[in-house]
Every structure is written in C-alpha cells, then in structure tokens.
Design a protein around this nucleic acid. Sequence first.
DNA 1: CTGAAAGCGCTTACAG
DNA 2: CTGAAAGCGCTTACAG
Lengths: 343, 343
Amino acid sequence: MNLRELSAHLGLSQTTVSRALNGYPDVALETRRRVAEAAERFGYRPNASARRLATGRAHALGVAFPVDQNLLLDPHYIEFIAGLAGRAGEAGLDLMVSATRRNESEVYRRLARTRGIDATILSGPMIEDGRIDLLRSIGLPFVVHGRTGGVPDYAFLDIDNRATFRQAAQLLVDLGHRVIGAVNGDPVMAFAYERRLGWEEALTASGLTADPTLCLGGPMTEENGYRFARQLLERSPRPTGILCASVLSALGAYRAVRDLGLRVGRDVSIVAHDDGLPFIPPETMDPPMTVTRSPIRIGGERAAELALGLIAGRPVSELQQVLPFDLIYRASTAAPRSLARTV
Amino acid sequence: MNLRELSAHLGLSQTTVSRALNGYPDVALETRRRVAEAAERFGYRPNASARRLATGRAHALGVAFPVDQNLLLDPHYIEFIAGLAGRAGEAGLDLMVSATRRNESEVYRRLARTRGIDATILSGPMIEDGRIDLLRSIGLPFVVHGRTGGVPDYAFLDIDNRATFRQAAQLLVDLGHRVIGAVNGDPVMAFAYERRLGWEEALTASGLTADPTLCLGGPMTEENGYRFARQLLERSPRPTGILCASVLSALGAYRAVRDLGLRVGRDVSIVAHDDGLPFIPPETMDPPMTVTRSPIRIGGERAAELALGLIAGRPVSELQQVLPFDLIYRASTAAPRSLARTV
DNA sequence: CTGAAAGCGCTTACAG
DNA sequence: CTGAAAGCGCTTACAG
C-alpha cells in the first residue's frame, strides 16, 4: 500500500492525504480523521527512501563503528549506543551504523555525500583529534561524546572527567592515604588526560607529590587493569590507594591485589569510575567497590537529544552539556592499614 | 555534485554515466575511464535515497536492538553486531539499528513496510519464538543467529550448542568427576536448551545421573554466575565440576569458588563456553580457564554473508551453516581431589 | 555504444 | 480546505 493507492481508496488527492498524515494545518478535521483511520487500517507506512528523497532529510543518525580497534568497541561504547538508539528511535529516527577499520574519515565523507544521515555522533575524542576538523570541513553536523581541551565550539556532552578523579583521589587522601596510584584510560584519549589532571590536582592540593610514574594508562580492559595495578603494587613504597578508570580495569586490579596475597579495602583501597555497565555491577564485587558513577547510557540518550537539536537548527552554544556523577562509598576504600593500627 | 551535474560536465547523458559507474556492459572503455576519473575527482557519490527509490533495494541490513531487556544487550550480542556491521560494510551495505523495547514485532512490521532494509538478522531465538513466524508472514527476508528445534526451514547460522556442553561434560567425566553441575543460559533460549541436552547426554552416556536440579539457568551475567555456582557448591555432595555457558558467568563462578575458600582447578573444575569477548580473555583468568571456543564475531560475519545470499535470491537450503568450535584445555580443569590423592 | 524518457513514492509551493 | 503538478536524484527498459 503506497500513498497513491491509499489516496485513491479515500477518493482524495495525494497532496491532501500526505498533509493530513504529516499533521499540516489546513486539513478539515473530518478529513484528517478519515485519513488516519484508513492509514491505520491498511497499515500504511510511507516509503522511507521516497520521503528522504523528497524532503532531503535522512531521518537517521549515524555512527562510525570501529570494528578493528578494540579501543572503542568495548562495553562502554555499546551502552552508549544503546542509549543513542533508544532515544533516536523514540524520535522516529533510525540509527545507521557504519563499520570502520582505520578508515573513519572515509566513512564520514561517504555518509556526508550520500546524504544517508542527518547528523553523526563522534565518540572517544582524542587530545588531538583530526576527525572534528574533518566533520566541520565536510559540513556533516555532529555531536561529540566527550570533548577536547579548551572551550569547544561544537555540540558535545561529557562528564567532568577531571572532577571524577579529583574527588576519588581526594577521598583517599581524606582517609589518610599518602601514596596513590592511578590505572587510567589510554593516554591519547581526552578523557584520560582530564582524569590524570584531576588525580594530580587532588594530590598537589594536599601537599602530596603526584609522581607521574604512578599514573599508568592504556585501554580499559581487565588485562590492562591487572598489569598496571600489579606494576604499581610491586613498587616501594607500595601505593595504598589506586584509582581505576573503569570497572573493567578495576576487575583486573582486584585480581592483582589478590595475586599478591593482599586484600582490597584492608591493604589497598580502590576507587573506580563506573559507567553503569549492566553486567558488572560494582556493588556485587568482593568487596563492593567505591565508585564515581555516571551511566554512559544516559550519555547516549542525551547525545541523541543534542543531535535532534542540531538538526532542528538550534545554536551550538545551547547544545553543550556536562552530565553529573555521584560518588558512592563502599567497602573497597578504608583508612590505610598503618594508620588504622595507630588509631 | 549529483548525477546531472556530473553528466553535464562530461557532456554525456545521465544514462551513460550511471551505466559506466555501475559497471554495466555496453559502455566504451574510454568512456568508462573518463567517467570514473571525473567521479573520483569530484568525489561524486550517488544519493542513497534516490538509488534506493529507483532500485527498490535498500542496500541495508537491519537488526532490532533490544535496549531494555538486558537479555540480549550484552557483550555477546555486541561482538556479533561488530562482525555483522564489518562484513556488511565490506559488501557496501549499511546496518540499520532499530531500538526496540518489548515491541520487536512492531519494529519488524515498520521496517518491512518502510522498505528501509533488505533483510534482517534475528538474534537469540527462544525455544518457541513467534518472531520467526511473524517475519515469514510479513515477507521480510531474515537470517536467524541460532535456531529453534528440529530442522529449520529458514536461513540460519549457529554452532552445535549441544556438542559444546557434551564435550565439556565429557572432559570432566574423563578426568574422573562424578558430580557435575551446569550454570546455563536462560532456559527460554534455544541455545540453552541444547546445551542442557548436551550436558545430560554426556552424563547419562557414562552411567551418571543428570540430576535436573544440578543444571541452573538464567541470563549470563557475572552476578548470576556467582549466584548459581554458589548454589551448586553449597549442595551435598558438592559438585567437583561445573560447566558455564559464558566467560561472564564463569567470572562469577570463580568468585563463588573463592568465597567458599576453595580453589578453581584444585577443588572445583570449571569449563566455560567462550564466545571470544575481547575484554575477558579466559587465558588470563586465575587460573587460566578451559573452554569450548567459537568467536561470536565470526558468527556475525557469516550472518552478513548469509543475508547477502538471501538478497541475491539463493535458496534457503544453501544458507544454513553450523560453525565449528575448539575445546581448549587449561588449568581450570583437573582430576577431582579425592581421585588425585589416590593416584 | 549512447541517449531520451518514464518511473520509483513521496513532499510542497502554488493556484483556486 | 483541496488538488494538479513539479521535483527530489537516481535506474532502466527501450529505441536507435
């Protein structure tokens, strides 16, 4: 059933039926009702391609899906996509996923020329990220999930990454810890850069030195978490507190602590940033883990909303959002042992 | 730059340019070359919507992305999507992701009517799954990742789930284990049903009884893995071997073993099925874990290939594939302790 | 080997 | 309040 057939059936012109369906004014109430009823009955749905061609709007959002570099294709990214797809769907937009393998800019070019999407969402910006300039130069509207340094002149949503690690480190300092290491994300990523600064700020503000070799970074896997934590714990003096950039790395850090015959909470305090990955709830870890928390899925939803605003032509300055996070205290953090004894 | 402009620039008709670009015969070699060169130089890309409208082919695959039920929106599914998107992209197809929340059939109806995709991939079939009949009835071509009982009359790709658990259980039996439990997937899922049968078959074939209360099932999370394994290990007699449906549940099972003051490998042997999730390598677990292994990402790639075949009109009987798996022996399995002592 | 023309199924000024 | 008609940018029989 297409528009022509539906119109013929109703004895109306395509114009009127189209207008009625799309909620335009200047259609008699009774006509509108009849059209809606018939469309429903026949299960009429406008052909997406025809509509796109006629309006010039794709009614779709797009993302480049990095299928080779595990950097992004991780649970964090997926939760983000889930939020994005969900919110886009509610607004009647499709989500187009284009696989990329080291050819991300080529993919953006194609998407722009092909008019397959109205806007794209760029994830995981690096400290220096050529993709932003590229998107700007090809004129494809975009929202950045995260942000590069300075005051961005593009639409973005992010959390205050610096504050997450600053508050986490501050908590450990307040508990009495003096040697605090960090298992950070990949140092090329903008968010990891910010977190590192947060860790530094908390330490130096308390008169402690932020020894750069105590901040190790790399993709946030269990394996790296183990490797980095182990490296930190084998130093002398041994850190009594460790910050982790993700629950995934924290899983590895927990393992490293155990491997060395130590116990999380008692011998080593751990605080991680929790993106709300549904299958690794930090409250069921052993011991339950203290975290800064901001569900990345919410981020996906917000990104979709910002993209909608972008398409609607709202000014970029209104499309910049910093989401809040919570600091949730659990049993993986405590006063360091030496201190506990003297109390 | 559109086709009209490109043609005008070349002094050729749109017909000829289109034919040259699409590799049709009956175009002079020199013309073909000139067209290709100009298209490249101007970065011409056909408007996707126009092409879709004209050909009736969407040049896109679609999947329903369940954003509320965590059942599917898990790392396994994502790895699958990565394979799917990658292979589809190589073939020049886009991947359309439509969010669903308890309205999956509505989404399929819309996709079919809207002509937005050429075929869809249905993931995680349940033992009784109405979606298959629905897809058939609305005429949307589909590939099933997995299969329901019997001999399917639809395109599918799957692994031999029954054999995975049968071989895993057999391994434990051969090592001398007599009480073997299973932490299975959700019992409504077809794959979990098959695995359960495999576990049963191995036990009964060896003269052991497959006590149904020793096979526990639910979504494959760390948490469920912990809960079910703990439940099994608190029984008397205590199982000395446990099968896990996923590395994720196995993570929880490892934790349960530790919590009870036991050790994996020594006190309890564990074998899991490994879908190749990149961020949880079983070889780095403590101790390294014995697994049956079949990367689910390969499954996604194959699914894309089958969908391509479907679109090309190949008969369904040629589009059914069962992927192999490996059994990889590591330190999480050993002879049970009582037996080890007598040796 | 090339081109004029119809058609895919919508939307949208424009006229009445 | 409604309709005839043009147009979105391609593809593809068909004619030459």
